[in-house]
Write a protein that binds this DNA or RNA. Structure first.
Length: 201
DNA sequence: CAAACGATTTTCT
DNA sequence: GAAAATCGTTTGG
């Protein structure tokens, strides 16, 4: 079942980040469905979070998408190479976002292998934010699209994730954020092979 | 208009 | 384990 708009419009971005664990991230481009179970996320809490692109209420042409209503995709280029996929949450005007850092491949694995130039299904196929975006065919051109449409969306497959199987830790690559770098805003499934390496666990 | 840098991944030693 | 690859966005002149 497709997640409804109300799922994304809520205000507790950290809670939503934990709830996304175990959901299915799906893309459908050119009639080809590719998908994977979300196993790792990071919350970015808008204007009060130094690690967020929208810290201090900053608005630029790139970050403008973060101010759209929850349920919008925010995709941007990092290190000139990698397309990073985020889910915008909260109501219009509040720039919350959740970075998806790892998925466990489910549908269209052949297509994902081809997109990544890989032969075998190894964790490197979709472990890491840049890797999973490439596998799913997500590019910066998709920033701003609505997750209630049929190109990129998230499904609840009904699988249960127990609270004890979700591990909280600090976010990756945000050392510049000072005290906010210490916030436990990264979440991942315990013992899952498709969790990114980041900085160890 | 020029310069620095990054919510990363891959490759080489 | 260390370093390179690579370019749009942001910031400063």
């Amino acid at each position: 079942m497709r997640l409804p708009e109300t799922f994304y419009l809520r205000s507790n971005v950290v809670k939503i980040a934990t709830e996304l664990i175990g959901k299915l991230l799906v893309t459908e481009f050119d009639g080809i469905r590719t998908s994977g179970i979300i196993v790792e996320t990071e919350a970015y809490a808008g204007t009060t979070d130094k690690a967020s692109h929208a810290y201090g209420g900053r608005r630029t042409s790139r970050t403008e998408v973060m101010y759209m209503p929850g349920g919008t995709a925010y995709v941007y280029l990092c290190y000139g190479i990698h397309h990073l996929f985020n889910v915008v949450t909260n109501v219009q005007g509040i720039p919350h976002a959740i970075l998806v850092r790892g998925i466990e491949p489910l549908d269209g694995i052949d297509t994902m292998l081809a997109r990544r130039g890989k032969e075998k299904l190894l964790p490197a196929l979709t472990a890491g934010p840049g890797a999973l975006s490439e596998a799913l065919g997500i590019k910066t051109t998709h920033t701003g699209i609505n997750l209630l449409d049929n190109k990129i969306y998230i499904e609840d497959t009904g699988i249960k994730i127990t609270r004890s199987s979700i591990i909280a830790s600090t976010r990756v690559g945000v050392a510049y954020a000072g005290a906010d770098a210490l916030l436990p805003y990264r979440f991942h499934l315990k013992d899952n092979k498709f969790v990114s390496k980041g900085k160890g666990l």
